[in-house]
Design a protein around this nucleic acid. Structure first.
Lengths: 184, 184
DNA sequence: GTCTATACGTCGATAGAC
DNA sequence: GTCTATCGACGTATAGAC
C-alpha cells in the first residue's frame, strides 16, 4: 500500500525497465536517474556502481522457478513448454539482458549460478542412471541454447513456430538426457 | 612472405587479439592503436568505428567449418567431438568474444547468420523426416548452448570432463534431432 | 593517400558543500 | 541524504602536415 516509492526503489524500477529495453551499454546512469527523477550521483551512491545496479536489478531465478517439477516422464516436453509458454516475454527479456551484459565477469558468474540453481541442482538427484550431474548440466546447456536462439538472436523461425510442435521436438532432445543412456 | 604488415593489417591483428582477450568493452580503441603502434585516430579512419572493426576482425565461420560433414549416422557425437576437440581454444574464444559483444544489434545478427550458414544451411536438406528445418535450427540451439556453458560462463565441470564422454552423452541428445522423430 | 595532433561530447565515478 | 562540480577515459571527428 505504499503510495510513494523510496528513492532506491524508484531507481531500481527505472533501471530494470531501461536495462531490459536498451541493454546494459545502451542504458546510461544518467538515463536511469532521469527516468527515476533523481540526480545521477544518487544512483551510484545507492548502488555503488552501474554494474552492481544491474546485478541488483536483474532477476533470473524469479522468472524460471519450478520448470523442472513433475514426473520425469515427458519432463523434456514440459520443460520446454514452460519456458516458451505464457509469460515468455518477461523470461526472455531478463535472459537477453543478462547475456547482452556478459562482457562483465560478475554477470557471467551470475548466469552460471542461476542455471545451476534452477536446473542442475534440482535435476541432478532425480536423474536415473550414470553421469547424472553431467547430464543435468547438459540439459542446462540445451535450455541456454534455446533461450539464445529465441530471445537473444531472435531466430524468426523459432520465434514464430507452433509452440506445441517446438516443445514436442526439442523436448524429445532434452528427454534423451533425462532418460538413462542406452549404450551401444 | 610479407615481412612488414600494412597499417590496416597491424590494426586488425592487434584488435583480434585484444578483443578475444579482454572482450569488446574491455578493449579500447586507444589500446588497439597502442598495440598496433599507430595513432588512435587511424583505427577509426581505417575501419569507420569500433563496432565495424570488431565485426571485420571476428570470424566464426572460419573456425567451425565442416563440423556437419560425414554420414548422418552418429553425426551428433562427431559434431560435438569436432566442437570440443583439438583447437577448441580458438573456437571458444571467437564465440565468447561475439556473445560478450551481443549488446550490439549487428553482432547479434552476425551470430544468427553464422549459425545459419554453418549448421542450419548444411543440415536442413540432409535431415530425413518431417520438420527438417526446425530440427536443424534446434541442433543449432544445442550447439550454441554447449558453447555458452563451456566457453562463455565456463562451467568447470563441463570444461574438465572427459571429452569422449561428453561427446557421447551430448551427441546422443543431438542425434535425437538428427534422426526422424518417432511419434507416440 | 597516409598519418599526426588536437578537440568535442558523453560516459561512470568521486569529493565535498548544503 | 542530496546536489554541484569535476575528474579521467572513452569513441569519434576533423584539420592539416608529410
Amino acid at each position: 500500500m505504499t503510495v510513494t516509492l523510496t528513492t532506491r526503489e524508484a531507481i531500481a524500477r527505472a533501471a530494470g525497465q531501461l536495462f531490459e529495453q536498451h541493454g546494459y551499454t545502451g542504458t546510461s546512469v544518467r538515463a536511469v536517474a532521469a527516468e527515476a527523477g533523481v540526480d545521477p550521483a544518487l544512483v551510484i551512491r545507492h548502488f555503488g556502481s552501474k554494474e552492481k545496479l544491474f546485478l541488483d536489478t536483474m532477476d533470473l531465478q524469479g522468472h524460471f522457478g519450478g520448470a523442472t517439477l513433475g514426473p520425469l516422464d515427458e519432463l523434456g516436453e514440459r520443460l520446454v513448454a514452460t519456458l516458451i509458454g505464457p509469460g515468455r516475454d518477461v523470461r526472455f527479456s531478463a535472459y537477453r539482458a543478462m547475456v547482452r551484459a556478459s562482457d562483465s565477469e560478475l554477470v557471467r558468474a551470475r548466469l552460471l549460478d542461476a542455471l545451476e540453481e534452477m536446473f542442475v541442482g534440482p535435476l541432478t538427484p532425480r536423474l536415473p542412471g550414470p553421469d547424472a550431474e553431467l547430464r543435468a548440466r547438459l540439459i542446462g546447456a540445451q535450455v541456454a541454447g534455446l533461450l539464445d536462439q529465441m530471445s537473444l538472436v531472435e531466430d524468426p523461425v523459432l520465434v514464430s513456430v507452433d509452440p506445441a510442435l517446438l516443445a514436442r521436438t526439442y523436448g524429445a532432445a532434452i528427454q534423451a538426457l533425462v532418460d538413462p543412456p542406452s549404450h551401444a
